[in-house]
Protein backbone atom coordinates (compact mmCIF):
# COMPACT_ATOMS: atom_id res chain seq x y z
CA UNK A 1 0.00 0.00 0.00
CA UNK A 2 1.56 3.22 -1.13
CA UNK A 3 1.06 5.88 1.48
CA UNK A 4 0.09 9.35 0.39
CA UNK A 5 0.67 10.76 3.80
CA UNK A 6 2.13 9.18 6.86
CA UNK A 7 2.36 10.58 10.36
CA UNK A 8 4.78 8.67 12.53
CA UNK A 9 4.41 9.29 16.27
CA UNK A 10 4.09 13.01 15.74
CA UNK A 11 4.35 15.20 18.82
CA UNK A 12 4.32 18.97 18.92
CA UNK A 13 5.35 20.86 22.00
CA UNK A 14 5.17 24.63 22.23
CA UNK A 15 7.60 26.18 24.64
CA UNK A 16 7.27 29.60 26.11
CA UNK A 17 10.38 31.64 25.60
CA UNK A 18 13.98 30.54 25.87
CA UNK A 19 14.37 30.61 29.61
CA UNK A 20 10.99 29.39 30.69
CA UNK A 21 10.56 25.71 31.23
CA UNK A 22 6.80 25.87 30.88
CA UNK A 23 5.57 24.09 27.79
CA UNK A 24 2.33 22.95 26.23
CA UNK A 25 1.95 19.67 24.44
CA UNK A 26 -0.36 20.54 21.59
CA UNK A 27 -0.21 17.14 19.97
CA UNK A 28 0.88 13.96 21.67
CA UNK A 29 2.13 10.92 19.74
CA UNK A 30 -0.27 10.78 16.82
CA UNK A 31 0.26 8.23 14.04
CA UNK A 32 -1.89 8.13 10.95
CA UNK A 33 -1.59 6.86 7.41
CA UNK A 34 -3.60 7.87 4.37
CA UNK A 35 -3.35 5.53 1.40
CA UNK A 36 -2.73 7.04 -2.02
CA UNK A 37 -5.14 4.87 -3.97
CA UNK A 38 -8.03 4.93 -1.53
CA UNK A 39 -9.27 8.48 -1.16
CA UNK A 40 -11.10 8.92 2.11
CA UNK A 41 -12.39 11.57 4.45
CA UNK A 42 -11.03 11.52 7.97
CA UNK A 43 -12.48 13.82 10.59
CA UNK A 44 -10.34 15.22 13.35
CA UNK A 45 -12.66 16.52 16.05
CA UNK A 46 -12.27 18.28 19.35
CA UNK A 47 -12.95 21.58 21.09
CA UNK A 48 -10.72 24.63 20.96
CA UNK A 49 -7.26 23.85 22.25
CA UNK A 50 -7.46 20.19 21.37
CA UNK A 51 -4.63 20.40 18.86
CA UNK A 52 -6.77 20.23 15.73
CA UNK A 53 -5.27 23.28 14.10
CA UNK A 54 -1.76 22.31 15.17
CA UNK A 55 -2.30 19.08 13.29
CA UNK A 56 -3.38 21.03 10.20
CA UNK A 57 -0.30 23.25 10.40
CA UNK A 58 1.94 20.19 10.71
CA UNK A 59 0.31 18.46 7.76
CA UNK A 60 0.75 21.54 5.60
CA UNK A 61 4.38 21.80 6.61
CA UNK A 62 3.96 25.24 8.19
CA UNK A 63 5.48 24.04 11.43
CA UNK A 64 7.78 21.13 12.17
CA UNK A 65 6.99 18.37 14.65
CA UNK A 66 8.95 18.33 17.93
CA UNK A 67 9.24 14.55 17.64
CA UNK A 68 8.24 12.05 14.99
CA UNK A 69 8.05 12.40 11.22
CA UNK A 70 5.57 13.38 8.56
CA UNK A 71 6.08 11.66 5.23
CA UNK A 72 4.44 12.66 1.97
CA UNK A 73 4.69 9.95 -0.65
CA UNK A 74 7.49 8.46 1.38
CA UNK A 75 9.50 11.65 1.77
CA UNK A 76 9.90 13.69 4.93
CA UNK A 77 8.09 16.94 4.24
CA UNK A 78 10.58 19.02 6.15
CA UNK A 79 13.31 17.89 3.73
CA UNK A 80 11.54 18.27 0.42
CA UNK A 81 13.48 20.26 -2.12
CA UNK A 82 12.91 21.87 -5.50
CA UNK A 83 10.40 20.11 -7.70
CA UNK A 84 9.21 17.77 -4.93
CA UNK A 85 8.46 20.75 -2.76
CA UNK A 86 6.51 22.45 -5.55
CA UNK A 87 4.52 19.25 -6.10
CA UNK A 88 3.79 18.98 -2.38
CA UNK A 89 2.64 22.59 -2.25
CA UNK A 90 0.31 22.03 -5.18
CA UNK A 91 -1.04 18.64 -4.22
CA UNK A 92 -1.71 19.42 -0.59
CA UNK A 93 -4.20 22.24 -0.30
CA UNK A 94 -5.96 23.91 2.57
CA UNK A 95 -9.26 25.58 3.29
CA UNK A 96 -9.29 27.55 6.51
CA UNK A 97 -11.98 28.54 8.92
CA UNK A 98 -12.15 32.26 8.51
CA UNK A 99 -13.38 33.24 5.06
CA UNK A 100 -12.55 36.86 5.83
CA UNK A 101 -8.92 36.63 6.78
CA UNK A 102 -7.47 35.08 3.63
CA UNK A 103 -8.45 37.87 1.29
CA UNK A 104 -6.34 40.90 0.66
CA UNK A 105 -8.83 43.76 0.70
CA UNK A 106 -6.85 45.72 -1.90
CA UNK A 107 -7.24 43.12 -4.64
CA UNK A 108 -10.31 41.79 -6.36
CA UNK A 109 -11.11 38.19 -5.58
CA UNK A 110 -9.74 37.17 -8.99
CA UNK A 111 -6.31 37.61 -7.44
CA UNK A 112 -6.81 34.65 -5.15
CA UNK A 113 -7.51 32.43 -8.14
CA UNK A 114 -5.01 33.81 -10.64
CA UNK A 115 -2.00 33.64 -8.35
CA UNK A 116 -2.02 29.84 -8.05
CA UNK A 117 -2.76 29.46 -11.75
CA UNK A 118 0.27 31.60 -12.63
CA UNK A 119 2.50 30.19 -9.93
CA UNK A 120 1.95 26.59 -10.97
CA UNK A 121 1.61 27.40 -14.68
CA UNK A 122 -1.76 25.72 -14.98
CA UNK A 123 -2.89 27.73 -17.96
CA UNK A 124 -1.20 28.67 -21.20
CA UNK A 125 -3.33 31.67 -22.03
CA UNK A 126 -5.42 34.28 -20.28
CA UNK A 127 -8.50 32.74 -21.83
CA UNK A 128 -7.66 29.32 -20.48
CA UNK A 129 -6.96 30.77 -17.05
CA UNK A 130 -10.35 32.45 -17.11
CA UNK A 131 -11.99 29.17 -18.09
CA UNK A 132 -10.28 27.37 -15.24
CA UNK A 133 -11.50 29.99 -12.79
CA UNK A 134 -15.05 29.91 -14.07
CA UNK A 135 -15.09 26.13 -14.00
CA UNK A 136 -13.93 26.04 -10.39
CA UNK A 137 -16.39 28.73 -9.31
CA UNK A 138 -19.29 26.97 -11.00
CA UNK A 139 -18.26 23.71 -9.34
CA UNK A 140 -18.76 25.30 -5.93
CA UNK A 141 -22.11 26.76 -6.88
CA UNK A 142 -21.19 30.37 -7.62
CA UNK A 143 -22.03 32.47 -10.65
CA UNK A 144 -18.66 33.55 -12.07
CA UNK A 145 -20.15 36.76 -13.47
CA UNK A 146 -21.27 37.74 -9.95
CA UNK A 147 -17.92 37.01 -8.40
CA UNK A 148 -15.07 37.86 -10.75
CA UNK A 149 -13.92 41.44 -10.62
CA UNK A 150 -15.43 42.13 -7.22
CA UNK A 151 -13.71 43.04 -4.00
CA UNK A 152 -13.83 40.82 -0.92
CA UNK A 153 -15.94 43.27 1.09
CA UNK A 154 -18.66 43.06 -1.53
CA UNK A 155 -19.15 39.35 -0.94
CA UNK A 156 -20.78 37.44 1.88
CA UNK A 157 -18.95 35.01 4.13
CA UNK A 158 -20.50 32.02 2.39
CA UNK A 159 -19.44 33.27 -1.02
CA UNK A 160 -15.90 33.89 0.17
CA UNK A 161 -15.61 30.47 1.69
CA UNK A 162 -16.71 28.87 -1.53
CA UNK A 163 -14.12 30.91 -3.40
CA UNK A 164 -11.56 29.38 -1.04
CA UNK A 165 -12.75 25.91 -1.94
CA UNK A 166 -12.66 26.92 -5.62
CA UNK A 167 -9.08 28.09 -5.19
CA UNK A 168 -8.07 24.69 -3.84
CA UNK A 169 -10.03 23.04 -6.64
CA UNK A 170 -8.17 24.93 -9.37
CA UNK A 171 -4.99 23.15 -8.33
CA UNK A 172 -6.47 19.63 -8.52
CA UNK A 173 -4.97 18.56 -5.18
CA UNK A 174 -4.50 15.04 -3.81
CA UNK A 175 -4.99 15.99 -0.21
CA UNK A 176 -7.16 18.73 1.16
CA UNK A 177 -6.79 19.88 4.73
CA UNK A 178 -10.06 21.55 5.61
CA UNK A 179 -9.83 23.33 8.95
CA UNK A 180 -13.37 24.18 10.08
CA UNK A 181 -14.45 25.07 6.55
CA UNK A 182 -18.12 25.53 7.32
CA UNK A 183 -18.19 26.87 10.85
CA UNK A 184 -18.73 30.44 9.65
CA UNK A 185 -21.09 29.64 6.81
CA UNK A 186 -24.90 29.52 6.59
CA UNK A 187 -26.62 26.23 7.28
CA UNK A 188 -28.14 26.11 3.82
CA UNK A 189 -24.76 26.77 2.19
CA UNK A 190 -23.07 24.32 4.50
CA UNK A 191 -24.76 21.45 2.73
CA UNK A 192 -23.49 22.75 -0.62
CA UNK A 193 -19.90 23.13 0.58
CA UNK A 194 -19.89 19.71 2.21
CA UNK A 195 -21.38 18.20 -0.92
CA UNK A 196 -18.61 19.89 -2.92
CA UNK A 197 -15.99 18.42 -0.61
CA UNK A 198 -17.46 14.97 -0.86
CA UNK A 199 -17.64 15.27 -4.63
CA UNK A 200 -13.91 16.04 -4.58
CA UNK A 201 -13.25 12.82 -2.73
CA UNK A 202 -15.55 10.67 -4.85
CA UNK A 203 -14.99 12.04 -8.32
CA UNK A 204 -11.53 13.55 -8.17
CA UNK A 205 -9.85 11.11 -5.81
CA UNK A 206 -8.93 13.75 -3.27
CA UNK A 207 -8.37 12.63 0.30
CA UNK A 208 -9.67 15.06 2.86
CA UNK A 209 -8.72 15.71 6.44
CA UNK A 210 -11.77 17.42 7.82
CA UNK A 211 -11.01 19.29 11.00
CA UNK A 212 -14.01 20.39 12.99
CA UNK A 213 -15.79 20.66 16.28
CA UNK A 214 -19.10 20.07 14.58
CA UNK A 215 -19.83 16.40 14.92
CA UNK A 216 -23.05 16.53 12.92
CA UNK A 217 -21.29 17.56 9.73
CA UNK A 218 -18.48 15.13 10.53
CA UNK A 219 -21.01 12.34 10.73
CA UNK A 220 -22.39 13.20 7.33
CA UNK A 221 -19.22 13.71 5.40
CA UNK A 222 -16.58 11.44 6.90
CA UNK A 223 -15.89 7.75 7.00
CA UNK A 224 -13.78 7.76 10.12
CA UNK A 225 -13.10 10.04 13.04
CA UNK A 226 -10.35 10.84 15.51
CA UNK A 227 -11.42 12.69 18.65
CA UNK A 228 -8.67 14.78 20.20
CA UNK A 229 -8.59 16.41 23.59
CA UNK A 230 -5.66 18.61 24.53
CA UNK A 231 -3.43 16.88 22.06
CA UNK A 232 -4.21 13.27 22.87
CA UNK A 233 -6.40 10.84 21.00
CA UNK A 234 -9.43 10.11 23.15
CA UNK A 235 -11.41 7.98 20.79
CA UNK A 236 -11.08 6.87 17.18
CA UNK A 237 -12.84 4.67 14.70
CA UNK A 238 -15.77 4.43 12.35
CA UNK A 239 -17.75 7.65 12.36
CA UNK A 240 -21.10 5.86 12.73
CA UNK A 241 -19.95 3.86 15.72
CA UNK A 242 -18.28 6.77 17.49
CA UNK A 243 -21.12 9.24 17.03
CA UNK A 244 -24.01 6.90 17.65
CA UNK A 245 -22.35 5.03 20.50
CA UNK A 246 -19.67 7.27 22.00
CA UNK A 247 -17.63 5.49 24.64
CA UNK A 248 -15.08 7.90 26.04
CA UNK A 249 -16.57 10.30 28.62
CA UNK A 250 -15.20 13.23 26.61
CA UNK A 251 -16.80 12.08 23.38
CA UNK A 252 -20.04 11.65 25.28
CA UNK A 253 -19.81 15.23 26.53
CA UNK A 254 -19.19 16.45 22.98
CA UNK A 255 -22.11 14.51 21.52
CA UNK A 256 -24.28 15.63 24.39
CA UNK A 257 -23.55 19.27 23.65
CA UNK A 258 -24.61 19.19 20.02
CA UNK A 259 -27.69 21.33 19.59
CA UNK A 260 -29.77 18.78 17.70
CA UNK A 261 -32.46 20.28 15.51
CA UNK A 262 -34.89 17.98 17.21
CA UNK A 263 -37.38 19.08 19.83
CA UNK A 264 -37.40 15.66 21.46
CA UNK A 265 -33.68 15.56 21.96
CA UNK A 266 -32.80 18.27 24.45
CA UNK A 267 -29.37 19.30 25.47
CA UNK A 268 -28.04 16.80 27.95
CA UNK A 269 -28.37 17.42 31.62
CA UNK A 270 -24.74 16.58 32.31
CA UNK A 271 -23.06 19.39 34.15
CA UNK A 272 -20.18 20.87 32.22
CA UNK A 273 -17.25 21.41 34.50
CA UNK A 274 -15.89 24.80 33.68
CA UNK A 275 -12.84 24.57 31.51
CA UNK A 276 -11.06 27.46 33.13
CA UNK A 277 -10.87 25.59 36.42
CA UNK A 278 -8.89 22.74 35.02
CA UNK A 279 -6.21 24.73 33.24
CA UNK A 280 -3.93 24.83 36.28
CA UNK A 281 -4.36 21.19 37.19
CA UNK A 282 -2.33 19.84 34.32
CA UNK A 283 -0.85 16.58 35.48
CA UNK A 284 0.73 13.69 33.68
CA UNK A 285 -2.41 11.58 33.73
CA UNK A 286 -5.42 11.43 31.45
CA UNK A 287 -5.93 14.91 29.99
CA UNK A 288 -9.63 14.75 30.68
CA UNK A 289 -9.19 13.70 34.30
CA UNK A 290 -10.17 16.96 35.98
CA UNK A 291 -13.44 17.21 34.06
CA UNK A 292 -14.30 13.54 34.00
CA UNK A 293 -17.32 12.35 35.98
CA UNK A 294 -15.88 8.82 36.06
CA UNK A 295 -12.40 9.72 37.30
CA UNK A 296 -10.67 6.81 39.03
CA UNK A 297 -7.38 6.39 40.86
CA UNK A 298 -5.62 4.77 37.95
CA UNK A 299 -6.39 7.73 35.69
CA UNK A 300 -3.26 9.50 36.95
CA UNK A 301 -1.38 7.53 34.31
CA UNK A 302 -2.77 8.08 30.82
CA UNK A 303 -4.81 5.20 29.44
CA UNK A 304 -3.82 3.43 26.22
CA UNK A 305 -6.42 2.85 23.52
CA UNK A 306 -8.73 -0.07 24.26
CA UNK A 307 -10.39 -1.56 21.24
CA UNK A 308 -14.02 -2.46 21.86
CA UNK A 309 -14.79 -3.39 18.28
CA UNK A 310 -12.99 -3.67 14.98
CA UNK A 311 -13.50 0.00 14.18
CA UNK A 312 -13.66 1.72 17.55
CA UNK A 313 -11.27 2.32 20.40
CA UNK A 314 -11.21 4.68 23.36
CA UNK A 315 -8.38 5.78 25.57
CA UNK A 316 -10.09 5.19 28.89
CA UNK A 317 -9.73 2.66 31.72
CA UNK A 318 -13.48 2.15 31.74
CA UNK A 319 -12.79 -0.21 28.86
CA UNK A 320 -9.70 -2.00 30.09
CA UNK A 321 -11.37 -5.39 29.61
CA UNK A 322 -10.84 -4.91 25.85
CA UNK A 323 -7.55 -5.54 24.01
CA UNK A 324 -5.05 -2.71 23.95
CA UNK A 325 -4.03 -1.00 20.72
CA UNK A 326 -0.70 0.70 20.34
CA UNK A 327 -0.87 4.31 19.18
CA UNK A 328 1.03 3.31 16.00
CA UNK A 329 -1.91 1.18 14.97
CA UNK A 330 -4.44 3.98 15.00
CA UNK A 331 -4.90 3.73 11.24
CA UNK A 332 -6.15 0.15 11.53
CA UNK A 333 -9.14 1.42 13.45
CA UNK A 334 -10.22 3.74 10.68
CA UNK A 335 -12.31 2.21 7.91
CA UNK A 336 -11.56 3.53 4.43
Amino acid sequence: MAALLELKNVTKVYTRGVLSRASTTALNDVSLTLAENEPTIVTVAGESGSGKTTLAMLLLGFIAPSAGQILYQGQDISRLGGAARMAFRREVQAVFQDPFAVFNPFYTVDHLLTVPIKKFKLATSAKQARERMEEALTAVGLRPEDILGRFPHQLSGGQRQRINVARALVLKPKLLVADEPVSMVDASLRANILETLRGLQKNHGVSIIYITHDLTTAFHIAKSIIVLYRGSVMEAGDVDAVIKHPQHPYTRLLIDSIPWPDLNRRWGETEIKAKEMEQSAQGSGCKFLSRCPFAMNQCVTPAPLFRMSEHQAASCYLYEQYPQVHSDQLTELLPV
Binding site: A187, S188, L189, R190, A191, N192, L194, E195, R198, T216, T217, F219, H220, I221, D240, I243, K244, W260, P261, D262
Partner: peptide
Protein backbone atom coordinates in the same frame (compact mmCIF):
# COMPACT_ATOMS: atom_id res chain seq x y z
CA UNK B 1 -34.70 24.84 5.66
CA UNK B 2 -36.05 22.20 8.00
CA UNK B 3 -35.49 19.33 5.61
CA UNK B 4 -31.92 20.47 4.92
CA UNK B 5 -31.05 19.82 8.55
CA UNK B 6 -28.65 17.00 9.22
CA UNK B 7 -29.74 14.25 11.56
CA UNK B 8 -28.52 10.80 12.40
CA UNK B 9 -30.90 8.95 10.09
CA UNK B 10 -30.14 10.37 6.69
CA UNK B 11 -26.36 9.98 6.61
CA UNK B 12 -24.72 11.38 3.54
CA UNK B 13 -27.83 13.08 2.21
CA UNK B 14 -27.04 16.71 1.71
CA UNK B 15 -30.24 18.45 0.95
CA UNK B 16 -29.22 21.97 0.31
Amino acid sequence: LISSLPNLENKGVFQG
